[in-house]
């Protein structure tokens, strides 16, 4: 008999000391978690990409939206400003002049929204650029859903108006200064 077994209290204490070593299995359960690994699946990832040729639930609605810009309301423009500041401003700048922080770091400078060409461009053009990308710009379709694309376009229009506003004309016309 070892000395430890001769004294039950000592044995109990030794068992207590070992308790923290127990791994609670509920902490790490055998289930798949978002962004986690999934052995047995391609890429060993729990997040699955769509099989080729399938359409995700909701995508048809999104596709319909692509051809149906919502009515422009103040709420839409405000949503557009918020999304613009998150996803577009890093390169296009908060004022839409193409002087964003990432451009300062060396990213190719995008055109200013105030260019005559882009002021004249139809809304569809902006929608397509957000959806598919353009030049050095990647597609933002995965991060900016169709409804938000229209909101951003409404805000870009607001930027175009505000940045090109003729203050003197506004004052003579009796508008707000």
């Amino acid at each position: 008999m070892t000395p430890l077994l001769r004294f039950p209290p000592a044995l109990a204490c030794a068992a207590l000391v070992c308790l923290p070593g127990c791994r609670q299995e509920m902490d790490v359960q055998p289930k798949l978690l978002p962004n986690g690994p999934a052995s047995g699946f391609p890429q060993n990832a729990a997040n699955r990409s769509l099989p080729a040729g399938t359409i995700a639930r909701g995508d048809v609605v999104a596709d319909d939206l692509a051809h149906a810009p919502p009515p422009v309301t103040l709420a839409l423009v405000e949503r557009g400003r918020q999304r613009f500041d998150v996803f577009c401003a890093p390169c296009h700048g908060r004022a839409g002049d193409g002087e964003g922080m990432i451009v300062e770091r060396g990213f190719p400078k995008p055109p200013s929204y105030l260019e005559t060409r882009l002021v004249a461009a139809p809304a569809d053009h902006f929608f397509d650029v957000i959806t598919y990308g353009y030049g050095a710009m990647y597609s933002y379709a995965a991060r900016v859903p169709a409804a938000d694309r229209w909101a951003i376009i409404a805000y870009v229009r607001a930027l175009q108006v505000s940045q090109r506003a003729d203050l003197a004309a506004k004052v003579t016309a009796g508008g707000p200064p």
Binding site: V86, F87, P90, I102, F107, Y138, A142
Partner: peptide, 29 residues
């Protein structure tokens, strides 16, 4: 750089997980 949290963690407002960005997001810049 002043990049908003949601630029990369784009599902944080709509989903349980904030979303670890796909590599494509890194490559945007």
């Amino acid at each position: 750089g002043g990049i908003d949290c949601r630029y990369c963690h784009s599902s944080v407002e709509t989903s349980a997980v904030a979303g670890v960005p796909p590599t494509e997001t890194c490559m945007t810049c």
